[in-house]
C-alpha cells in the first residue's frame, strides 16, 4: 500500500481520496443532463418507439405496431446499402484531408502575424456563408458545360467531367463543398487547442536542435491530442449524419443525384421521413445510423491511437516528458 504524499507530486497514478469538489461536480453537470432530459430525451425515446411502428406524418396518431419490420426492411433494401457505402466514401474524402488542412491552418494561424484576427475571422466565413448561396457557386464551378473547372480541364486537353451525373466526380464535388465549409471550423478548434501548449516547450525543443517539423511532431501533436481526439469523434459523427450539402447539390431534391450516386444515410433518412412521409422507416434508419456511428467512432479512435503513438514516437528531446495528456 503506497503512502499518499501531500506535496505536489509528479505521480501519474490515480489517487483515491474524497475530493472537495465532488458534490459540486454533480451540480455543474446537472444543467446539461436536466436540459437533455427535458428536451431531448423524450424525442429520443419517441423516435425509437416510432421506429417499431408503421407511421406517416399525415396520420401520425394512427400508429400500427410492426415490431422490427422497419429494420428488416432496411437490411434488405438496396437504397440503404448504397447510401451506407456512399456515406463511407464521402465521409472519408470529406473528413481526412479536411482535418489535416485544418491542423495546418491552425498551426500557421498560431504564429505571430499581422492581421491575425482578420485571418481568424476569414477562415470561419465559409461556415457563416449561407449554404444555399455557397452551393449555387459550387454548382456553377462544377457545371458540366459552363463551369470553370471543366473549362480548365479542356484547356489542359483533358476530358470534361460530369460533376453532377457520374458517381466519383459527384462525390468529390460534394466532399469539396463539405471540406470548404468545415475546414475553418475545425481549424479554430485546433487553434484553441494550440493556445494550451506551453510556448517554452517549443523553445526548449529549439534549443535542443529540433527542426520545425520535429517540433510539430513532438510538441504540437502530443499537446493537441485531446483536441485531435475531439475533432475525430465530432467529425466522424458529422460525416455519418451528413445531408445538407448533398441535398442542396441536387437542388433540394433528396435523392442524391438521378442515380442516387451521392445519397448519404442522412439524406436517405431525410427522403424517407419528409419526402416519402414514412416516419417509422426513417426513425429506424436514424437508430441504425446510431449503431453505425458508434462503431465508426470506436474504429476511428482505435486507428488514431495507433497512428498517434507511431507518429509521435518517443525519440524526443530529453528534457521533455511526453505522456498521455488524455486520461
Amino acid at each position: 500500500m503506497t503512502t499518499i504524499s501531500d506535496t505536489r507530486a509528479v505521480s501519474t497514478r490515480r489517487r483515491r481520496r474524497t475530493r472537495p469538489g465532488s458534490k459540486a461536480a454533480y451540480a455543474y453537470i446537472a444543467p446539461f443532463f436536466l436540459l437533455f432530459a427535458a428536451f431531448s430525451l423524450y424525442p429520443w425515446l419517441d423516435t425509437a418507439w416510432v421506429s417499431l411502428h408503421d407511421v406517416r406524418l399525415s396520420t401520425y396518431h394512427q400508429q400500427t405496431w410492426i415490431g422490427l419490420d422497419n429494420y428488416k426492411n432496411l437490411f434488405t433494401n438496396a437504397f440503404f446499402w448504397r447510401a451506407f457505402k456512399n456515406t463511407i466514401t464521402i465521409g472519408i474524402i470529406s473528413t481526412v484531408p479536411q482535418l489535416c488542412m485544418a491542423l495546418g491552418i491552425a498551426h500557421l494561424l498560431n504564429y505571430r502575424l499581422r492581421g491575425r484576427t482578420f485571418f481568424r475571422v476569414a477562415i470561419l466565413m465559409p461556415y457563416a456563408t449561407s449554404l444555399a448561396a455557397a452551393t449555387v457557386i459550387f454548382l456553377q464551378l462544377f457545371d458540366k458545360d459552363l463551369g470553370i473547372i471543366n473549362w480548365f480541364l479542356s484547356e489542359l486537353h483533358l476530358p470534361r467531367v460530369d460533376w453532377q451525373g457520374s458517381k466519383w466526380p459527384a462525390q468529390i464535388a460534394v466532399s469539396s463543398i463539405v471540406t470548404w465549409r468545415w475546414t475553418g471550423y475545425n481549424a479554430l478548434i485546433y487553434l484553441a487547442g494550440l493556445q494550451a501548449i506551453d510556448g517554452t516547450l517549443y523553445e526548449a525543443a529549439a534549443i535542443d536542435g529540433a527542426s520545425r517539423w520535429q517540433q510539430f511532431r513532438h510538441v504540437t501533436i502530443p499537446g493537441l491530442r485531446p483536441t485531435i481526439l475531439f475533432t475525430i469523434v465530432v467529425s466522424t459523427i458529422g460525416a455519418s449524419q451528413l445531408f445538407g450539402e448533398p441535398l442542396l447539390y441536387h437542388n433540394g431534391i433528396p435523392d442524391g443525384g438521378t442515380s442516387y450516386q451521392y445519397q448519404t444515410l442522412g439524406l436517405l433518412m431525410y427522403q424517407q421521413g419528409w419526402t416519402n412521409d414514412r416516419l417509422g422507416l426513417a426513425s429506424a434508419t436514424a437508430w441504425t445510423m446510431f449503431g453505425i456511428i458508434v462503431i465508426a467512432v470506436l474504429v476511428n479512435l482505435a486507428l488514431t491511437r495507433r497512428r498517434a503513438h507511431h507518429f509521435a514516437a518517443p525519440e524526443a528531446a530529453p528534457t521533455l516528458q511526453l505522456s498521455e495528456v488524455t486520461r
Binding site: 443532463f33 431531448s40 424525442p43 423516435t47 433518412m269 426513417a282 446510431f290
Partner: peptide
C-alpha cells in the same frame, strides 16, 4: 453518455419536440 447523445441523428425528433 454525454458523448453518446451526439450520435443519434435527431432529424425525426423534431416532430415529438414540436408537440412538446
Amino acid at each position: 453518455l454525454c458523448v453518446v447523445t451526439m450520435m443519434v441523428p435527431m432529424q425525426m425528433g423534431i416532430i415529438p419536440l414540436y408537440m412538446l
